Simulated scan of single mutants.
Amino acid sequence: MKLLLDTCVWGGVQTKLVTAGHDVVWAGNWSEDPGDEEILATAYREGRILVTLDRDFGELAIVRRMPHCGILRLVNVNSRQQSTVCLQALTLYSDELVSGAIVTAELGRVRIRPPDDTR
């Protein structure tokens, strides 16, 4: 699966996801943070699911209707748990994410917002 990790996601998550066979880019490796809009646009252009801790991406996708290829938001997950929660969500909800859903995952709880058919 192709993923783009937001700058707020711990960089060590990239290593774990690559080891699990995913194609991963971490925005933290970029020379500068281009901001949320450009991060979401880059993920879309490259066909990547965005992984973030930031709730602002939901507003960009839902309210401002910016196109995306799926968003996985990790909530209340410390850096040591991010890899585990991310891998579990990708395993269990890959079909939903690939279809453009917004998946919000925390320890013991997942919410899924299906893609908006009116895009």
Rank of each mutant, 00 (worst) to 15 (best):
G108Y: 02
V75F: 05
Y93T: 10
V110W: 00
V77D: 04
T118W: 06
D54R: 13
L53M: 13
R55C: 08
I71A: 04
Y93D: 08
R119S: 08
R111L: 13
V98Y: 06
D95V: 07
G28Y: 06
T84Q: 11
W26V: 01
V75C: 08
A43H: 01
A41H: 02
V51T: 10
A89W: 06
S99K: 11
L72S: 10
G28T: 08
L92C: 13
V25H: 12
L50S: 07
G28R: 11
V98F: 04
D116Y: 04
R65P: 00
A61G: 03
R48K: 03
A101Y: 11
D54P: 10
L40P: 00
C86M: 12
E37K: 09
E106M: 13
P114Y: 02
S99Y: 02
L87I: 11
D116I: 02
R119A: 05
I112G: 09
N76Y: 07
G35C: 09
D36A: 07
Q88P: 04
G47C: 05
D36V: 06
A43Y: 00
E96R: 14
H68L: 03
A43P: 00
A43F: 00
L92A: 14
L92T: 12
G108E: 05
R55H: 14
E46T: 00
I71K: 06
S94Q: 15
R64S: 00
L90K: 15
N76Q: 09
G47E: 03
E106Q: 12
R64H: 07
Y93H: 15
R55E: 12
D33N: 15
L92M: 11
G28I: 02
L40N: 08
W30E: 06
I49E: 01
E106G: 12
R111W: 04
G47A: 05
G47R: 05
T52C: 11
L107V: 08
I71C: 06
W30G: 06
L60C: 04
V85M: 03
T52V: 09
I39E: 10
I102F: 10
R48Q: 02
W26C: 02
A27D: 14
C69D: 02
R65I: 00
Y93I: 05
A105R: 15
E46Y: 01
T52G: 10
G35W: 13
R113W: 04
W26G: 03
A105W: 10
G35R: 11
S94F: 10
Y93M: 09
H68W: 02
W30H: 08
Q88M: 13
T52R: 09
S94G: 10
L97I: 10
G58Y: 10
R55A: 12
R80S: 14
D33S: 03
R48Y: 02
T104Q: 12
L72R: 06
L92D: 15
P115R: 00
R73G: 06
I39D: 10
A89F: 04
E32I: 15
